[in-house]
């Protein structure tokens, strides 16, 4: 839309207009200014988002296998064939996709829920803490600041079966198990990926909650305290109420980010994770780059995108209703 306007504007000569009494539809630099300002952003959005997305949607309708990677115009058109394969839940590929989706959903609910509770609780108690607040705040934020792979690789070391700290604590220290369990293969892999993701995610929830609590005016608490409200009542009726809009945004962001989590399973397990930790993004990644079936991979990413759009849409409806009721 912006581009067509620019083209129209360019055809007309730019004339200096009198400062007062301009006709509403005349060209002026002021009217053109916002389009010039967003022009670089529009060009780059086209380059890195819009065109790749259109190409991606097109790719989901062609049979883009390894024979056609370097010459994709030759790939045969298969219509909705890739989607039929991805959504055929009785076939092996469709079933794997459903399993991966359910694992990702469980993973996301656990990670977002626990990260939110951790972040909120830590912010609540630190907000009212005098000494030691700065130190703990800094400590809690380090996992978030750490590059993802650095943090995850520490956990990979801790979770090693033979020389890892966790098994040493569980087996030799606490004698909770007689055999050293595997944490990076088999069913336990799910626990590992959840714990490591929480370790990285909860500081973000903490950071946002802290920031939200800082803007709540202190007078509110003082007034409530004079009226005899207990600490818990203050938290429930002042902090939680005031935090509602921020929490809504925070939960949506956490959900969207966690649902597409790639780094944690990829660094912990490599490109082919154990079944129990086969998160969707890694699933799409390995289906595409290991079997080189980009058509199917694109169809699955389009489905993932549609799901996230639906989630965000439902969130927007819910958020609007909450705000109207409040």
């Amino acid at each position: 839309m912006a581009l067509t306007f620019l083209k129209q504007a360019a055809r007309r000569p730019a004339e200096p207009s009198p400062p007062a009494a301009q006709p509403a539809k005349r060209f002026t630099w002021t009217r053109l200014a916002p389009y010039l300002l967003i022009l670089p952003a529009v060009l780059f959005e086209l380059l890195v988002h819009v065109i790749p997305m259109i190409v991606g949607i097109f790719m989901s309708f062609i049979q883009l296998t390894q024979f056609f990677i370097t010459n994709w115009s030759a790939a045969p058109f298969v219509g909705t064939g890739n989607y039929a394969v991805a959504l055929d839940f009785s076939g092996p590929l469709g079933w794997q996709l459903v399993r991966s989706f359910l694992i990702t959903l469980g993973f996301t609910v656990l990670v977002v829920g626990i990260s939110f509770v951790f972040g909120m609780s830590a912010a609540l108690v630190l907000h009212r803490l005098g000494r030691g607040r700065g130190f703990l705040r800094t400590l809690f934020l380090i996992p978030y600041a750490l590059p993802a792979y650095a943090g995850i690789i520490i956990w990979k070391f801790i979770l090693q079966r033979d020389n890892g700290l966790l098994n040493q604590l569980l087996v030799d220290g606490l004698h909770l198990a007689s055999e050293r369990p595997f944490w990076l293969i088999g069913g336990n892999a799910f626990v590992s990926v959840v714990v490591v993701s929480i370790w990285q995610q909860w500081p973000f929830a903490f950071l946002m909650s802290m920031a939200g609590m800082q803007v709540i005016p202190e007078e509110l608490y003082q007034a409530a305290a004079i009226d005899g409200a207990s600490t818990w009542q203050q938290i429930r009726f002042i902090t939680m109420r005031m935090m509602k809009p921020l929490n809504a945004v925070l939960l949506l962001l956490l959900f969207l980010w966690t649902f597409r989590e790639f780094n944690t399973p990829y660094v912990l397990f490599g490109p082919t994770p154990p079944e129990a930790a086969d998160l969707l993004t890694v699933h799409i990644y390995s289906s595409s780059f290991i079997t080189w079936n980009f058509g199917l991979g694109s169809a699955m990413s389009v489905l993932l995108m549609l799901f996230l759009v639906v989630v965000a849409g439902l969130w927007a409806l819910w958020n609007r209703r909450v705000n109207r009721d409040a």
Partner: peptide, 30 residues
């Protein structure tokens, strides 16, 4: 500024940042 296309532009910016990277990786690779 309030200009025509502002809503579309903001909408594209807001929605692309919630999409997973793998959605862009496959087409960009090709």
């Amino acid at each position: 500024y309030r200009f025509r296309g502002r809503g579309v532009f903001s909408g594209v910016v807001l929605s692309t940042q919630m999409f997973p990277g793998v959605l862009f990786l496959l087409p960009l690779f090709i």
